[in-house]
Amino acid sequence: MQVSIALNGATSEHEVEPRLLLVHYLRDVAGLTGTNVGCDTSSCGACTVLLDGMSVKSCTVLAVQADGRAVTTIEGLATNGELHPMQAAFREHHGLQCGFCTPGMVLAAVSLAAEGGAGDEAAVREGLEGNLCRCTGYQNIVAAVLDGANGNGVRS
């Protein structure tokens, strides 16, 4: 099947198998390997991307379901050589160690902040429940998201 996706602001058109997962489209077809795969049960959130601005786990979406829609991956977040405020906040607060969960975590945080769900520590902890990190113990991630949401101007 033919899909046309607005991928990080540019049109991405390919012929794909109907069963192809969006995450494999991104990684293997579009060559955007920043989106990682950490599990096979939609538990870890490493593959989180933005679909029309909302976070989704791209292992639970078929590429054909993204047809005609906008997808933002971690590669599309920094602009003009500047880190997005959420990316910058993760660095500032040491919110990453090995970095494997980080692209998904950052995009989940961007979506959470945009939804107004990053108001306080408890909200951030609940809001990031779908994204696992094995390195940081989450404390610095939570601090980063609170700060990044603020820097983004959407923290209420």
Binding site: T33, G34, T35, N36, I74, A78, Q87, R91, G99, P103
Partner: peptide, 21 residues
């Protein structure tokens, strides 16, 4: 000092290459 990490930019932008990448 708590110098911010040199490793972070490539990990934060998806530039880092894991084996599957």
């Amino acid at each position: 000092t708590s110098l911010r990490r040199k490793e972070d930019p490539r990990l934060l932008t998806g530039e880092a290459r894991f084996v599957d990448d």
